[in-house]
């Protein structure tokens, strides 16, 4: 009844597709935000006295980033979603865009801390060596520091991916149809709560298990290049 009638299983698949789409979109946005913020914050932390030209700008940037991280991490995801959906973009019909934006902005705060810890874990001598050769901060970051940091970051980033995927279930509150909303709609139609909810729980679980497996493979492959 909950799955077969009226081809309802197709609705679940469509919902799952939406959830995955939201996850990918939000993670991409989160990583972009996270990289920018983490670089501003580490540049601020590692700045040497005397390079006054940029330090004023960095201090402002750092303050903004800290404020952002504090607010995003200090308020519930669902509240952020409702503010974005019903206040900031109240007139928007593009709920998918709003959802990705809200999830991405939320994720960016966590990703930035993950990346920052990854960058901090790299020996400062790497930056010094790069700078001593005449390369700029950004070049050394991109060519030397970030590629090494990514290896250390990957497990935590995988965790964030999984959290984000499950958090997509919250976007049903702003009326977007993803996997959880599908289950709710079907339950409202059939008055049978058990099968839809157990069903989607299983779907979430299977996807997370697949993600974990893929991440593990990726991690092992990156580590192998270490020992060459």
């Amino acid at each position: 009844m909950s799955f077969v009638v009226n081809d309802r299983w197709k609705l679940y698949l469509k919902g799952l597709g939406k959830s995955l789409l939201l996850t990918v979109g939000a993670l991409a946005l989160g990583i972009v935000i996270g990289v920018v913020i983490s670089i501003v914050r580490t540049a601020h932390d590692q700045k040497r006295s005397g390079e006054d030209k940029i330090s004023a700008g960095l201090s402002v940037g750092n303050a903004i980033c800290q404020l952002y991280t504090t607010i995003i991490r200090g308020t519930p995801m669902m509240v952020q979603l409702m503010i974005m959906g019903f206040v900031v973009f109240a007139s928007s019909r593009n709920m998918q865009g709003v959802a990705i934006l809200a999830l991405g902005i939320n994720s960016g705060a966590y990703v930035s801390e993950i990346i920052r810890s990854g960058i901090m874990s790299i020996d400062p001598g790497q930056m010094e060596a790069g700078r001593s050769l005449g390369m700029g901060y950004g070049t050394v970051m991109k060519e030397v520091i970030l590629p090494q940091a990514i290896k250390n970051i990957l497990p935590a980033l995988g965790n964030e991916l999984i959290t984000l995927f499950k958090d997509t279930s919250l976007v049903s509150v702003i009326g977007m149809t993803e996997l959880t909303k599908v289950a709710r709609d079907i339950q409202a139609r059939t008055y049978l709560p058990m099968m839809p909810y157990l069903g989607i729980a299983l779907m979430y679980l299977v996807v997370v298990i697949i993600m974990t497996w893929l991440l593990g493979k990726l991690e092992r492959r990156m580590r192998r290049s270490d020992r060459r």
């Binding site: 020996d123 001593s132 005449g134 030397v144 090494q148 270490d226």
Partner: peptide, 16 residues
């Protein structure tokens, strides 16, 4: 710095 090479105690080669 392009004109001044530097060699460090701990080499600081780029492992990647």
């Amino acid at each position: 710095r392009e004109q001044m090479g530097m060699v460090f105690q701990h080499f600081n080669l780029f492992p990647n």
